[in-house]
Amino acid sequence: MRDLPPPRLDQAGPSLAIAARGLAKSFGTLRAVDGIDLEVPRGEIFAVLGPNGAGKTTLMRMLATLLPPDGGTATVMGHDLMCAPQAVRGAIAMTGQFASLDEDLTGRENLILLARLWGFSRRGARARAEALLADFGLSGAARRQVKDYSGGMRRRLDIAASLIVTPGVLFLDEPTTGLDPTARQRVWRLIRRLAGSGVTVLLTTQYLEEADQLARRIAVIDHGRKIAEGTSRELKAATGSGFLHVALHDPGGLDAAAALLSERLGHPVSRNAEDTRLAVMAGSAAEANAALAALIEAGHDVADFSMGTPSLEEVFFALTGRMEEATP
């Protein structure tokens, strides 16, 4: 069968878990993934960061053999995606964006089912299920139907279901979307522990903090294209030498202040999620100083300001230009 070629360490090199070149996928006229190159070293956590509709899920589904690419090539753990999909499947596990569990079955039965499909004996499957349930803090809920699980429990069970056999690469599509901060921390710890045991993790996220916290390297994608890649430090450094952060006493003046800063400094101004602070790239400290002086001269009541490296969030906005609405 063509799905079982001899193991081969090909041109991608043995040190790469994932090597993709020009991967592309269109839905009709929409180029969901538009030529993405990716190199993920073995044993690393790698984050793909992008807004809704950027193509994260599509990219991941292609790498997990769930969606045939229209163009490009890729190897996963040395197996070619197109020539040896069954070998790729043997080396990966995927936890999709939405829990892929049988809601009618219990947590334990879900895991046993998958263990049996992997080829464990009846007894082996039971033992494997118990071990995973214990490690994911789900022993107490093992005999409850999954439809009665909370979001965090589902997520953990879903990840556990991907670890029946230790995968070479684990794909996690937005592993903490919709979780509360405690549940998110818990999943983060699980992911770090997995990486510690040698599993390569490719995760997608919309949360900059998540990428910053977990991943060694981050690829930022938007509209199906990779717009930046590097460590979080590199991404921040690449965006600009300095960022001017300004907070006003009167939030009502933010729009006017943003317009002024953008005009003076020639860069788009972003604001934080709480709508209390503005951030803008500044070419130099002198320019920042002048802009600030102009702001105060115009009558804005500046509560607080600082110069510093940008947060990942600001990097993201600078790269994708998604905060244009802040500059009229």
């Binding site: 043997g90 080829g119 995973l132 349930l133 214990a134 230790t166 818990r186």
Partner: peptide, 21 residues
């Protein structure tokens, strides 16, 4: 809060058994 750090069994490397029919 703990992630049940007792037995490391679930996180230990588990190899794939012989493929089933």
């Amino acid at each position: 809060m703990t992630d049940a750090p007792t037995g490391e069994t679930g996180f230990a490397r588990v190899e794939r058994p012989a493929p089933p029919s």
